[in-house]
Simulated assay, not measured.
Amino acid sequence: MSPPTPAAPGGHDAFDLLATMVAVVHRDGRCLFANAAFENVMGLSRRHVRRRDWFDWFVEPELLRETVAAVARNEFSTSRLDAHLKRPVAAHAEPLLVHVIVNQMEDPDVTLVELIEIEQQTRQDREERAHEQVEANKELIRNLAHEIKNPLGGIRGAAQLLQMEVASKSLSEYAQVIIKEADRLQALVDRLLAPHRRPHLVSDVNIHEVCERVRALILAEFPRGLTIQRDYDISIPDFRGDREQLIQAVLNIAHNAAQALSERMTAADARIVLRTRVARQVTLGKQRFRLALELHVEDNGPGIAASILDRIFYPLVSGREGGSGLGLTLAQTFVSQHHGTIDCESVPGRTLFKITIPLP
């Protein structure tokens, strides 16, 4: 007869605040505690998880069983390995690849096991790189603007003086071309600097009002052959932010999507989906948030070329002929000012931009 399973040890409520899966496991395989993240990933209650041998939740449990036993025997104070976690509720889903960290606890027969989704770690690394990229973009833009503006003013002034001095009409036209091109470059510099110059105007923002404004603007410009579907979670609360910046960020993404759908508009099956969801226990920029908004802008266009997919948020990178390459850079800057992130996934027939912003 097996010994009775003891009650879950107390003092572990704080583990429910973590994004990573945490379990307290006896060396014989009994699960004494599983946190909320473990429940969410498994799609099962922690009571259900504790009913069976904890190692049975893994595709190849023997190495993990041996590792837990070795840590419990004090052969190691901590140990790490990779494993595949079964997801019983999502029967069609592939096992989840996780990085397992096994640590000792005060009870020599009990270990603390943390499971980190490999994909989650990759995402966090990507978010950190994106934040560094935003800061690098700011510095690049400031330096670029400084280096361009000073000589640009001199070129324009010299062209104006030249235009007043020359008698030849053709030479005067050439001077006018110089002036117009200098003005175009000045406008480009101003657009680059705009998000860093204007103040951050904070007020209560309803994300669905933002989406509806963007939807109306896109349909006004592309009235035929395009459907913009709404898929809203109306329970999402208002949050503090700059409404105009968020409208511009979402508009830039949706406008790019609409322009990429020109061929499908001709066939009258172009589609953009605006989707809102709530994400729980989200880490953004190394900070933990209990709730976050996820806004998806999805289209059924040809997709983004793989050669530029990892650079689409860089200034002046565009996948469309005639594009300025500033729309997504500005969108990323505006979302970053709300402590959020933008991710992109793209394959032919489906491109998805996901904006994540913390909620109160």
Rank of each mutant, 00 (worst) to 15 (best):
P3K: 00
P3D: 00
A14F: 09
L18V: 03
F33A: 13
A34G: 14
A37F: 03
R47W: 15
F55A: 08
V59N: 02
E62V: 05
L63T: 11
V68G: 09
A69Q: 10
A70S: 11
V71P: 01
R73I: 00
N74T: 07
T78H: 08
L81E: 09
R87K: 08
L96K: 11
H99Q: 11
V100S: 11
D107Y: 05
T111H: 04
L112R: 09
T122M: 15
R129I: 10
E132V: 06
E135S: 09
I141R: 01
A145P: 12
I148S: 15
G154E: 06
Q160A: 12
S168Y: 06
Y174F: 15
Y174K: 12
Q176I: 01
K180T: 12
A182I: 11
L188Y: 13
D190H: 08
L192E: 07
L192H: 10
A194S: 14
R197A: 10
R197K: 13
V202I: 15
S203A: 11
V214C: 04
L217T: 12
D233Y: 05
F239Y: 15
Q245D: 15
R264Q: 09
A270N: 01
Q287A: 09
R288W: 07
L291S: 09
E294H: 09
H296C: 01
G303T: 11
S318A: 12
T329P: 06
Q332K: 07
S336G: 03
H338S: 04
P358W: 01
